[in-house]
């Protein structure tokens, strides 16, 4: 038996508390479905969801859908992140570029990305391109503006020290600005990755042949709530994994900032 102080310390550990929170909701779900107060068509039991999930997995649909969604997110986000980095840095370091682009970006940022879907379908049809473009539109402006902010907060002393040590131009960018903003850039990507992941599901709900969002909208047509639950849980788990991946990367690459 653990003595009370050890138990308390164990219980106050963030991981233990986190698992406890998830477990509580799960147990509540189990309880409600097992006593049958809710129609199982509306709320399937954990067992039924597990059943539907493993059936999808065995038929290869689950992995196929997940890969399709991940591929779209990856492609759209890599383009968005890759372009936002130089443009955000340019806006953060150059007043003219900042004044030129900031109002435009601030405006477009407030246009909800899903509202672009009809236009994207008209322009690019129903293939992969409109979905990748949607993720790009939905994340690029946030990425660029947040990177710009990170650059603006580089302490002037760090830049001026480099100047007084004989530094100029590009080396200051690569050796002072870049390392200083690296943690914030990774965090920006982590935060905006969440909206990329939201948008791919929205795009697939509208039009797609495969993908986790497509599977959910198909499940709705046949009233398969168990399959909708499978989709939601898988989406959540993949998102969480990406988030943890970014956190891990940040801890490894920017240990000085913690």
């Amino acid at each position: 038996m653990a003595s009370p102080p050890t138990l308390r310390r164990l219980l106050s550990h963030p991981w233990v508390l986190g698992v406890l929170g998830i477990l509580t909701v799960f147990l509540f779900w189990l309880l409600v479905t097992s006593i049958g107060v809710v129609d199982k068509l509306f709320l399937p039991s954990p067992a039924a969801v597990w059943e539907a999930g493993s059936s999808q997995f065995q038929r290869g649909i689950l992995v196929n859908d997940a890969m399709a969604s991940i591929r779209r997110v990856f492609l759209g986000f890599v383009i968005s992140a890759g372009l936002a980095l130089p443009i955000g840095i340019a806006m953060g370091t150059n007043r003219t570029i900042c004044h030129l682009l900031e109002p435009l970006m601030a405006l477009i940022r407030y246009m909800p990305a899903p509202a672009f879907i009809p236009l994207l379908i008209i322009y690019f049809g129903l293939e992969e391109l409109p979905k990748v473009m949607l993720i790009f539109i939905g994340t690029f402006f946030f990425n660029a503006l947040m990177i710009m902010d990170a650059v603006k907060f580089v302490p002037s002393e760090l830049v001026e020290t480099a100047l007084t040590l004989g530094g100029r131009g590009l080396p200051i960018l690569t050796r002072v600005v870049a390392p200083f903003i690296a943690p914030q850039v990774l965090d920006t990507y982590r935060i905006n990755m969440a909206s990329a992941w939201n948008l791919v599901i929205v795009a697939e709900l509208v039009a797609a042949n495969e993908g986790l969002g497509k599977r959910i909208s198909l499940a709705q047509r046949f009233l398969r709530t168990d399959e909708i639950f499978v989709g939601l849980i898988v989406i959540g788990l993949i998102g969480l994994m990406i988030d943890l991946g970014f956190r891990f990367l940040m801890r490894r690459a920017c240990s000085w900032a913690n």
């Binding site: 302490p155 760090l158 040590l165 900032a257």
Partner: peptide, 19 residues
């Protein structure tokens, strides 16, 4: 006319590169 390494400088704050 411009900063140069013939005039070394030490600031009060953020004097070192933290990484």
């Amino acid at each position: 006319r411009r900063p140069g390494s013939d005039r070394g400088m030490v600031f009060q704050k953020y004097s070192l590169y933290p990484w």
